[in-house]
Design a protein around this nucleic acid. Structure first.
Lengths: 259, 259
DNA sequence: CGCTGATATCTTCTGCCGTAAAGAGATCCA
DNA sequence: TGGATCTCTTTACGGCAGAAGATATCAGCG
């Protein structure tokens, strides 16, 4: 069950995200042996290495030579820790893009950066987006995109729609890649092999598949040609990203033209 | 940790999804007291009522007068159960659309159906899309879209890109609605109030927000005007959906025109 | 009909999880 | 030196998915 932080808790969360804490005058008691940043880094390391599902307070604590409970001195709950991981990870993205080549080139660069970023940290896609995090790096990412799109001259309502569309598209596309990567690596078979097995299984379990879903069969049949050594699925996914982005940007140009 | 089913397990999963099981001659042992369908329906009821996070094998079992473990007789794991829920829920979507008004109107109808569908079952958006499910209703949904888009005359590689783009967009947009719905209902404050509190908190915790993220401030400032009694966030979200879909379809028309 | 062994159903149990509560021990100010 | 205060551990609890095992049911045979 997702629990939403109350008023006071919200303030605490935001303070953590924005790192607004006075250093504090010297006070009694032992010096902190850990810090929020150290903990968040350790948690990200666990997630990168073993995936989101394997992330537990005990495991993060262990990595730092502590018990899981020690973390609660620095972080109110696991949920907050995940928010902090999310925002911190976003920090590795660029914050500004060159507009010399026009907005279209810049948006393309932005989208490709984000796309690759999600592929580098696939666990981010599993972070429940049930709540906006509102951290500094999330805003920085938004800022960088809006700064580009303002060049189009679109007014805010239309521009907001384009922003959402871009975020949804990149996230969705990245998710598809994560799928096609995760499955083979976990089973030890190549993705080509995996899909072959899968489609054979389909014919076995759903005889007459092609007759029942003629359009699906048609659209999947006429294949693109993968480059040398490029895995089949990888090719399809890259192709979908490129095509999708082109279509999307063409649509933006239409909107720009319409004023 | 997401575990991927092996070869034999994959066959079992597919057989469950496609319901291809011989009735079986009468065999020793007690008669089954439950069935896969009964279990899946109970699980969907739990998810609809309490959300995905509250779904547990015990709770589903309880609803059927059994322990949670009793379900494992019919379903190999919780993951498979979720796959079955996912595909079964998709079954309530239409499988064909009227093409009399042209492909653009049909795609719009398709997207709006899917959008509303996800809002009706928000837990579906929390289903980890880390693995394709490949169930019959998922294919039926794809079939219905491709059947429409074939009217555009686009060749498969381009068409596949458009399909992905549409799915990603609708899913993403629906996720945003789910967010804006969930937060207020959980805390008991209106969404307007929630955002107000949130932005006040932002200024408090990140003084000079507008100076640090001028583009974000600008794009959020110039607001659309909500209709009467329409909540502010709801309005923004609906607007984003409409605008995004328009932009997207304009892009498709460009692709169609280019041949 | 009654017994036996095979087999399917369902439950008890294990080992995780997040985290609350309580307190041990370290550290610093007065 | 004494008390306040903070870090971190131990212990415990309820809930989770799932392993292993107890139990109930039925086919086939005498």
């Amino acid at each position: 069950m997702v629990v939403f932080a109350g008023q006071g808790d919200a303030r605490r969360s935001m303070a953590l995200l924005w790192r607004t804490e006075e250093p504090g005058e010297s006070r009694p008691g032992p010096k902190p042996g850990l810090s929020v940043d150290v903990i968040v880094d350790a948690a990200i390391a666990v997630a990168d290495a073993e995936g989101m599902a394997a992330l537990s307070m005990r495991k993060v604590g262990e990595r730092l030579g502590r018990t899981g409970m020690a973390l609660y001195t620095y972080v109110p709950s696991k949920g907050e820790l995940v928010d902090l991981m999310y925002d911190k990870a976003l920090g590795e993205l660029p914050t500004a893009y060159d507009l010399a080549g026009g907005w279209r080139a810049a948006v393309t660069a932005w989208a490709e950066h984000l796309w690759r970023f999600y592929q580098r940290h696939p666990w981010l896609l599993q972070v429940s987006q049930a709540r906006p995090v509102l951290g500094p790096n999330e805003f920085a990412l938004l800022e960088s995109l809006v700064a580009i799109l303002r060049e189009t001259g679109l007014r805010p309502p239309r521009l907001r729609g384009v922003v959402s569309l871009l975020f949804d598209f990149v996230r969705g596309a990245a998710r598809t890649v994560a799928e096609s990567r995760q499955a083979p690596s976990a089973t030890g078979v190549s993705d080509e092999e995996w899909w072959l097995t899968r489609s054979r299984l389909l014919e076995e379990v759903a005889p007459g598949f092609a007759a029942r879903f003629p359009m699906v069969a048609w659209v999947e049949s006429e294949g693109g040609v993968p480059g040398e050594g490029e895995p089949y699925v990888e090719h399809k996914v890259n192709e979908a990203f490129t095509v999708g982005l082109t279509v999307l940007l063409d649509g933006v140009e239409v909107a720009v033209g319409a004023g």
